[in-house]
């Protein structure tokens, strides 16, 4: 009987620990720390499954909820911080002397630091080869958040983004003092068009 009471005591301790972890996950604000907490939460639940005489369920829980699911959380949280910019300008607006020191990059960097975003700038030749008219299609069909082009007639740089995103409105307010930057917002089109 001594062994049974030991198992019962450890089961109660683990259940109290589970409640503490659940409250910590509810109260915590930083999503990155919650991932570590949720992995330890599923480790504690797996040990409770073993104490409930269910080794099969414990193996499944360990393999899926403390290995694969935290990885998916990490990937999706890192994807939700990045702001993807397609740079179609060929002069030194973003890149000067092969480094990010252009005036446009300084503006975007200040914008990204303010909203805790990570800039992800690309000048991929395959996407840049598409014509000017396809920018709206590109914005809707891919995850590109902002397209930078240059208007040769007025000598202005044009920022293009989706109208639904609140970040493009914030960017418009930030850049209204600069004369050589214009913001274009694509409205949603109906599916039938």
């Amino acid at each position: 009987m001594g062994d049974l009471t030991l198992i019962d005591a450890s089961a109660y301790a683990l259940q109290v620990l589970l409640i503490i972890l659940a409250i910590a996950i509810v109260m915590h604000k930083n999503n990155g720390t919650i991932i570590i907490l949720i992995a330890s939460f599923s480790l504690v639940t797996a040990s409770l499954y073993v104490l409930n005489s269910a080794p099969d369920v414990a193996i499944a829980e360990i393999a899926i909820n403390s290995a694969i699911i935290p990885l998916i959380y990490v990937i999706s949280i890192s994807r939700q911080r990045e702001y993807i910019i397609l740079d179609k300008v060929n002069d030194d607006f973003i890149i000067s002397d092969n480094s990010f020191t252009g005036i446009g990059y300084v503006i975007l960097k200040r914008f990204a630091d303010f909203y805790h975003l990570e800039l992800n700038i690309t000048n991929d030749p395959g996407l840049c080869a598409l014509g000017e008219g396809e920018d709206q299609v590109l914005c809707e069909a891919t995850n590109v958040d902002l397209i930078i082009t240059k208007d040769t007639e007025t000598n202005q740089y044009v920022f293009k983004g989706k109208n639904s995103s609140i970040l493009i409105h914030k960017l418009e307010q930030l850049t209204k003092d600069h004369d050589n930057i214009r913001v274009v917002k694509f409205k949603d089109r109906d599916v039938g068009e």
Partner: peptide, 28 residues
Amino acid sequence: MITTIVIGSTVTAMALMLSIKVFHYYGS
């Protein structure tokens, strides 16, 4: 419950994929 764990993981993955799409559409 074994089947529940496997299904739950795919449902979680689908919700996270939708949340990435929501971020790129609404910006938040």
